[in-house]
Amino acid sequence: MFVINCPYCGERDQSEFSCGGEAHIVRPKQPTELSDDEWAEYLFMRKNIKGVQFERWNHAHGCRKWFNMVRDTSNDKIHAVYKMGEKPPVL
């Protein structure tokens, strides 16, 4: 359990949030032209990193807005929080 600094609401308990998994997976521009392999890659395959990971979170029991987070999954330490559409920070 940890505290998350929501970019809209400030510091709140992690239990108010839900994790949307790996961030910056871009939706294919031309879905109709995608092969099955490319669909599998987009839909299912994940890096699932042990270490610093970029991920999406939603303040589900708060402002309900989505944002991005950089978190170390080996110790749950949060390195950065930034809004959707903003450039990911260089660490």
Binding site: Q14, E55, D76
Partner: peptide, 8 residues
């Protein structure tokens, strides 16, 4: 399970 990815 906890609802987030973690190896802790």
């Amino acid at each position: 399970t906890d609802a987030y990815i973690s190896y802790t």
